[in-house]
């Protein structure tokens, strides 16, 4: 049997790294290498070309506004077309927070300025204005019969187009827009979400789902043997408990 390898493109790590996003990469690496799957992560900066077929998975994290502008510019001019081609071709993409917003059609800032996104995903995000409430707090999401946990911190409200499904349903927290109960977005093998914390270490099932999806394109179904996830499971369960308990008294809870 050929040695399996997961090739990851980590987009803009110096710009998009605000909420411990490094943990997501560490998690993917660990969960691959413990199963003897080789893991290669290439860091791509603004200006670096992206070949649509060179990677099994792409990751983009969150950032501050200033860095996000720089990245948005690069997505438009340099990497956008290849990214669209990759996603249409079934490459797995995980986009978190600001990276999630950037995958969409546009982001309208609090001041009403409309910044074009990469247009990979049929979503759009609107910041209702400087006085609007920011969505900050612990989140629990129902996802494929299980839960995802994380922390959200965003001013923009994201809305999904017709061909896009939410990643999960909000149990505690705000989610995409605080209204329709949806969190994140799925289109083909693109997964967008507001959850950080870091997202993947505490959600090992989701991490494995991404790994399996990414490998399936080149290798077909790859069985992933279970790992020792005792600490992961406890951290996950604790996060659910804290988020839902605190939801009752309204801190970080759903209003």
């Amino acid at each position: 049997m050929t040695k399996l390898k997961l090739r990851l493109a980590h987009l803009y790590p110096k710009h998009m790294n605000i909420y411990g996003d490094r943990g997501n990469i560490l998690c993917l690496r660990r969960r691959c290498e413990e199963r003897a799957i080789a893991f290669q992560a290439d860091e791509l900066a603004p200006g670096d070309a992206l070949a649509a077929d060179a990677y099994d998975m792409v990751f983009i994290g969150g950032a501050q506004d200033r860095e996000q502008r720089r990245v948005a510019e690069d997505l438009l001019k340099v990497k956008g077309a290849a990214l669209r081609e990759a996603v249409e071709g079934g490459v797995t993409l995980l986009a978190v927070c600001g990276g999630y917003q950037l995958m969409g059609r546009f982001y309208r800032t609090a001041e009403g300025e409309e910044l074009p996104g990469a247009g990979v995903l049929d979503i759009w995000t609107v910041h209702p204005g400087p006085r609007a409430r920011r969505f900050i707090g612990n989140v629990v999401v129902k996802w494929r019969g299980a839960t995802l946990v994380g922390f959200e911190n965003h001013g923009g409200r994201t809305h999904l187009g017709a061909g896009v499904r939410p990643l999960g349903r909000v149990v505690a927290g705000f989610g995409n827009n605080g209204r329709d109960g949806g969190e994140g977005a799925v289109y083909k093998n693109l997964f967008g979400t507001y959850l950080h914390g870091s997202l993947l270490p505490k959600n090992p099932q989701f991490a494995d789902h991404l790994i399996a999806t990414a490998l399936a394109r080149r290798y077909g179904d790859v069985p992933l043997p279970p790992l020792d996830d005792r600490i992961e499971s406890t951290a996950h369960a604790e996060a659910v408990r804290l988020a839902t308990r605190r939801g009752i008294i309204g801190i970080g809870g759903r209003k």
């Binding site: 790294n17 909420y19 411990g20 996003d21 490094r22 943990g23 560490l26 900050i136 707090g137 612990n138 922390f151 911190n153 950080h196 914390g197 870091s198 270490p201 804290l242 801190i251 970080g252």
Partner: peptide, 15 residues
């Protein structure tokens, strides 16, 4: 801890 004075978001430990 993740009380308000600590910061509610603990994702910083990954940095």
């Amino acid at each position: 801890n993740d009380n308000i004075a600590d910061g509610r978001d603990v994702s910083w430990i990954w940095d």
